[in-house]
Write a protein that binds this DNA or RNA. Structure first.
Length: 484
RNA sequence: GCCGCUAUCGUCUAGGGGACUAGGACGCCGCCCUCUCACGGCGGAAACCGGGGUUCGAAUCCCCGUAGCGGUACCA
């Protein structure tokens, strides 16, 4: 029986939860769920200068919003300081690491002199243990460097296959700072060993760190975990996704009206696919289909257009009842509906949301559409007016519609629809000739939900008022033209 | 510079020697549905980075080149 799977997501709290980080967290989450394993969250805050609590908060919020529930943690890497030091001490005692007394200035000078040829020259490795102990005891500052052994280091990456590094290309890297705090590679290995992590699933920008870490596992006498390096996420220009590409933080997408399940689904498909042609897949379905083996090697461009499409798919599938908490506050703020309506939505409100959700790609698009129907004023779209009211018979047709609508009973879409058809028939024109000018009169726009639905939601009084306003507008502009 | 990774439509991708006339999705175009828009349906344009091998046969395997990306810190 294989060891139970234990994976981790280990962000450094120096900013927001980036979509790249979110995707890494997502894959760890999916793998843990798929295998019945444990998903640990670890905050890598050994760099105290750059780490902030606010950042940690934001990352946790982002993960929660996305639905990435962790099983253990968050554990703070800084809490493992004593263990990190002890591990470095052990390596030192066993001769697998050594003290380096070179000052940062001296190192910088050598680097400057040799430029690209530079690699740490191991000068301090020549210092005898006794001498090293004496200088340390005398209070001379030092870092601890790992002594990279001869040979080659390789691993069978789940994503990339066998990957090999010549140890000669790796310098004796520092594992403990002058301050006695651990450098990333030591802290990560020490923690992953301590947490009994079985699979390290992370971005492939860590590939170059992997041989160093494997060397550390071996020196520490710990089992080496399985590695899976995920491809990067790029911006539209093919460069690493960054702030200048616009939205990169998970929170940005929440603010753009993206549903968490849509981003969850979209991110899962960036660098992975189920092997068949399914695309719109919920969390449970993704967990079921997930496997590390199907992860791609190639970096993927983050395509906002496709995200928006996917969001539209989720929007359309959600019930009005589920959507109301998301769009309700905005509708109330606009004064379109009352808080009580949102609390206990009447049928018309649910119908409104159902009508608008299929037309929207983001939740942000719903309120403006609702305003066109329920708002106090009409914003006429110039080109819609020009096109749909151009026919000289427009005013006459609107009046005919008005007359019929004034007596429709009951005021329901089912009752309204045949009445409009009847008007069109009596006028000897297609329904479009009546509905389109009417649509512009009611909404100011040439595009809207079905005209019968629009009339119903708007209410008879408001609808008749807008028809009157439109007729008056047409009359005045007609008069203006005749006066020319 | 050195080390490493990667390379199929504009984008996300299927493909792991013959099933490829290279499939799907987003976007784009056209048609249908239709009171408009959206949804949905149907159809179209659109790709194997280049060159050598291996093989009866390469998108698939190997090598070289090219390009992109990552790393090269007392950051993570």
């Amino acid at each position: 029986m294989p060891d139970p799977v234990r994976v981790r997501f280990a962000p450094s709290p120096t900013g927001y939860l980036h979509v790249g980080g979110a995707r890494t967290a997502l894959f760890n989450y999916l793998y843990a769920r798929k295998t019945g394993g444990v998903f640990v969250l670890r905050i890598e805050d050994t760099d105290r200068e750059r780490s902030t609590d606010e950042s940690t908060r934001t990352i946790l919020d982002g993960m929660t919003w996305l639905g990435l529930a962790w099983d253990e943690g968050p554990v703070h890497q800084a809490d493992g300081l004593a263990r990190h030091r002890a591990d470095a001490g052990r390596l030192l005692a066993e001769g697998k690491a050594y003290r380096c007394f070179c000052t940062p200035e001296a190192l910088a000078a050598k680097r400057e002199a040799l430029k690209n040829e530079y690699r740490y020259d191991r000068s301090c490795y020549a210092i005898s243990p006794a001498e090293s102990d004496r200088r340390a005891a005398a209070g001379e500052p030092f870092t601890v460097r790992f002594r990279v052994p001869e040979g080659t280091t390789a691993w069978d990456d789940v994503v990339h296959g066998v990957t090999t590094f010549d140890n000669a290309s790796i310098e004796d890297f520092i594992i403990l700072r002058t301050a006695g705090t651990p450098i990333y590679n030591l802290a990560v290995v020490s923690d992953d060993v301590d947490m009994r992590i079985t699979h390290v699933v992370r971005g492939d920008d860590h590939i170059a760190n992997t041989p160093k870490q494997i060397l550390l596992y071996q020196a520490l006498g710990a089992p080496v975990p399985t590695f899976a390096h995920l491809p990067m996420i790029l911006g539209p220009d093919g460069k690493k996704l960054s702030k200048r590409h616009g939205a990169t933080a998970v929170g940005d997408y929440a603010g753009m009206g993206i549903l968490p399940e849509a981003l969850f689904n979209f991110l899962a498909l960036l660098g992975w696919n189920p092997g068949d042609e399914r695309e719109v897949m919920g969390p449970a379905e993704l967990v079921e289909a997930f496997s590390l083996e199907r992860i791609n090697k190639k970096a993927a461009v983050f395509d906002t257009e496709k995200l928006l499409w996917m969001n539209g798919q989720y929007l359309a599938r959600k019930s009005a009842q589920e959507l109301l908490p998301l769009v309700g506050p905005e509708l109330v703020a606009e004064g379109l509906v009352s808080p009580a309506d949102v609390e206990a939505p009447p049928p018309w409100l649910l119908a409104l949301v159902d009508l608008l959700k299929v037309r929207a790609r983001s939740t942000l698009e719903i309120a403006p559409q609702a305003r066109a129907l329920l708002g106090e004023t009409v914003a006429y779209d110039e080109s819609a007016v020009a096109k749909q009211w151009r026919d000289p018979a427009t005013a006459e047709r609107l009046l005919a519609v008005r007359e019929a609508l004034a007596v429709v009973e009951p005021w329901t879409p089912e009752a309204i629809e045949p009445v409009l058809r009847d008007v069109a028939e009596r006028l000897g024109v297609g329904l479009g000739k009546v509905a389109q000018p009417l649509r512009v009169a009611l909404t100011g726009s040439a595009a809207s939900p079905g005209i019968d639905q629009v009339l119903w939601l708007m209410g008879r009084q408001k609808a008749l008022g807008r028809i009157d306003a439109a007729v008056a507008l047409i009359a005045s502009s007609g008069a203006a033209q005749e006066n020319r």
